[in-house]
């Protein structure tokens, strides 16, 4: 599912749940629902965060209960928190994210080796291809055989691209293999919240 599909799914569920949705102004009003960040197509996740604006105050429990009765199987609201109207958006305070990567072969040693040096990849930018070192975006890695847990940068400006990291790893190992990615957590700046 694309990010847009997920957004639409969430909006429809809110409508079904009969929540007092707030709409944007303008020519084509749409519900104010915005995910902290998009999830790459094909990834799974057990932790996504979303800002929602309602037209009327309701309690957190009511929101959770109503949403969970309206979401399709596989989707569930775990937590909700009321914030001030002028609170910063989730996207603005997001710092990092954690991922579980499961590969079809042992990648433990190769991953450690990869991380011992700069990881230079070519990125497509507006002004053509550019070489960048993505090593600083990798904050922590915990590798066991074919499974790795990665913490990497993720903020409003961008973040660690798992595809690029795995691409470099494949290059290093000189072979192709399959892998799945699951986002397990998004970390936010919590001071002054």
């Amino acid at each position: 599912m694309s990010h847009l599909d997920v957004q639409r799914l969430f909006q429809r569920a809110m409508h079904r749940a009969n929540l007092p949705m707030a709409y944007s102004q303008g020519f084509n009003p749409h519900p104010i629902v915005s995910f902290a960040t998009a999830l790459a197509v094909g990834y799974t996740s057990i932790s996504e965060w979303v800002d929602v604006k309602l037209a009327k105050d309701i309690t957190e429990t009511e929101f959770i209960e109503k949403m969970n009765s309206a979401l399709p199987a596989g989707f569930c609201v775990l937590k909700a928190k009321i914030v001030e109207n002028n609170a910063k958006s989730l996207t603005a305070i997001m710092k990092a994210a954690e991922y579980d990567v499961t590969a079809s072969c042992d990648i433990e040693d190769a991953m450690h080796e990869l991380l011992s040096d700069d990881i230079v990849v070519t990125k497509k930018t507006k002004s053509g291809m550019k070489e960048v070192n993505i090593r600083p975006d990798v904050y922590a890695v915990d590798a066991h055989g074919s499974s790795i847990h990665i913490t990497g940068r993720l903020d409003a400006a961008g973040g660690l691209n798992i595809e690029l990291l795995m691409g470099s790893l494949k290059e290093k190992m000189g072979g192709d293999f399959g892998y799945t990615v699951r986002r397990t957590n998004i970390i936010f700046e919590t001071e002054g919240k």
Partner: peptide, 8 residues
Amino acid sequence: LINCTGYD
């Protein structure tokens, strides 16, 4: 139909 689908 609107209630049970959430379509807009």
